[in-house]
């Protein structure tokens, strides 16, 4: 399982590289090679590193450990078919991790990025909860139960299409250069990660790689079901490319608009959940 963990991290970084390449080609730029994000992580890990003089030292370093730790836990939960709620909890905790990354250094840019991450959490998290609407169909929130249910009744992508859209928006919110990536907007230099450089940034890259793999694989398991490993890989690449298209052709929203649009979708999801609930109850 340790080899899988390392491979998942590298594969996630490769997906982020593909994401950058596709965006660049759509915008008629050559773009970096697809393995650029892996090289990035390696490059940062070799650099001279220190902790900023104004930083809260224990938090500054500790949060990098927490960031990698929570996604390692999420990886195990996903691999063993554990509770979807745990993955959801870890996704939420990632918001706090971004918040802590931004606030721990004393930098004003990081601080704004961190505050934006908490504000967007207010709209993203209810969006993720709306995926719980699928529990009305499957009667369970355990991934293995949901996979088993799909083997009998067919993929949830068709049966609970609006829930898939909500989860897709969650994925989109987590992709860099997307319409909802307000936490790392260029007016904030690099947002919450401005002051985490060198080894700390390499640690963050490891977390990002793992996070990308876990979220995309969870999406596939949740809405398509268990697939052979090569089909999983192909499916994840296809989802990444579709996300890249969305990111390439949409501008980044202002923080206010980003929260409004996500809240709007949450409202629609609540209506959908209500309809499903009444349909199931009737």
């Amino acid at each position: 399982m340790i080899a899988e963990l390392v491979l998942a991290t590298l594969f996630g970084l490769l997906l982020l590289g593909i994401h950058r390449k596709v965006i660049a080609r759509i915008q008629r730029r050559p773009g970096p090679p697809v393995w650029q994000e892996i090289l990035h992580a390696a490059k940062f890990s070799f650099k001279t590193t220190w902790v900023p003089a104004t930083a809260s030292r224990a938090l500054f370093i500790g949060i990098v450990l927490v960031a990698i730790g929570i996604w390692t836990a999420a990886f195990f939960v996903m691999m063993t078919g554990g509770s979807l709620l745990v993955i959801f909890g870890i996704y939420m905790l990632h918001k706090i991790v971004e918040h802590a990354f931004g606030l721990s250094s004393g930098s004003p840019y990081g601080k704004f990025g961190g505050v934006r991450s908490v504000i967007s959490a207010a709209s993203e998290i209810p969006l993720f909860v709306s995926v719980a609407a699928i529990a009305l169909f499957t009667r369970s929130l355990t991934l293995s139960d949901i996979i088993a249910w799909q083997q009998v009744h067919g993929p949830l992508l068709i049966i609970a299409f609006p829930a898939a859209i909500a989860m897709y928006l969650v994925l989109l919110s987590k992709m860099p250069f997307g319409p909802f990536s307000i936490v790392e907007a260029k007016e904030l230099v690099s947002g919450y990660k401005t002051e985490h450089f060198g080894v700390w940034r390499a640690g963050l890259e490891v977390c990002n790689g793992l996070k990308t793999t876990v979220l995309l694989a969870t999406f596939l398991l949740l809405f398509v079901g268990q697939l052979p490993i090569w089909w999983m890989v192909i499916g994840m690449v296809i989802i990444t490319v579709s996300l890249s298209f969305t990111c390439a052709i949409t501008p980044m929203l202002s923080p206010f608009d980003s929260v409004t649009i996500q809240s709007l979708f949450t409202g629609l999801m609540l209506v959908y959940a209500g309809i499903v609930f009444l349909g199931v109850a009737a």
Binding site: A55, A58, G62, P108
Partner: peptide, 11 residues
């Protein structure tokens, strides 16, 4: 972490 850390000095 709260117990261990000293507060940041906001710039």
């Amino acid at each position: 972490l709260v117990i261990l850390s000293r507060p940041e000095r906001q710039v």
